[in-house]
Design a protein around this nucleic acid. Structure first.
Lengths: 123, 123
DNA sequence: AATTAAATTAAGAATTATTACTGATTTTGA
DNA sequence: TCAAAATCAGTAATAATTCTTAATTTAATT
């Protein structure tokens, strides 16, 4: 019963085929290689649909763009303020979430532990 | 040698007098009560200056706005996806940062541990 | 396979948040 | 006090994202 959309599948495929945590604009450029007529609005809409379905993740680093991640396994991110690169960090916040949900009496559905600074290449 | 600016002081005062993690627009509205002629651009510029000086913090929750926090003591945030409210969480990421900096061999200058879900009022 | 209803699209206009520019004013430091 | 530097208000410009509409595609039903 799941609705099908060639465009949505293509957006997801492109996002899942990179580890670079791209922006909507990058995804748009790359989906166009396969579907030259796709529009930027369609990319944005489907990124939102996918992220509400929780089959992708939306990341905010305060650099003015949303970034997206096709890897939904529990992990965190490091943002290099110098070169702008985003690195995966092997920290799983699941346990931390439980503790915090308990003590703060809230219902946590997702966590984003974002670290920033200078990456080893930029030092 | 520190430069003085009545506007910058007022922006900081307004931000520090609330616990609501407001947006630039909210800060603008409230600074205007004291300085009716201040412009939105000035608010934005000073928020950036203050946040580069690290005397305030910029927060991104992916809701399309930047939020600001005058409380720079180490703590984390919970964003309610339902009502949009932002709550302080008493989690200090300093230790976690050290561990991660060690294992990932990066230089961490700041961390943002943002949790989201439904707050107790919205449940 | 034909038909209809629902979902989705492309294209571009509109909106919103934020930044940049400009000439005038204020602050600093000698 | 006075010139240089910083900052301002106002406005224009930019950039990211959402919205609108008519057309097309997909799904469900015959």
């Amino acid at each position: 019963m799941k609705n099908f959309s060639r465009q949505r599948e293509a957006v997801k495929k492109v996002l899942c085929s990179t580890k670079t945590h791209p922006t909507a604009a990058w995804i748009y450029e790359n989906v166009r290689k396969e579907l030259p007529n796709i529009s930027l609005g369609t990319v944005y809409r489907n990124l939102n649909v996918l992220s509400e379905e929780r089959s992708i993740k939306k990341l905010s680093f305060g650099d003015g763009n949303e970034h997206f991640d096709g890897d939904i396994s529990p992990h965190s991110h490091f943002y290099c303020e110098c070169c702008g690169k985003i690195y995966d960090i092997a920290f799983d916040a699941t346990e931390l979430c439980k503790e915090i949900a308990d003590s703060a009496k809230v219902n946590i559905t997702s966590a984003a532990c974002n670290f920033s600074g200078k990456c080893s290449q930029c030092q």
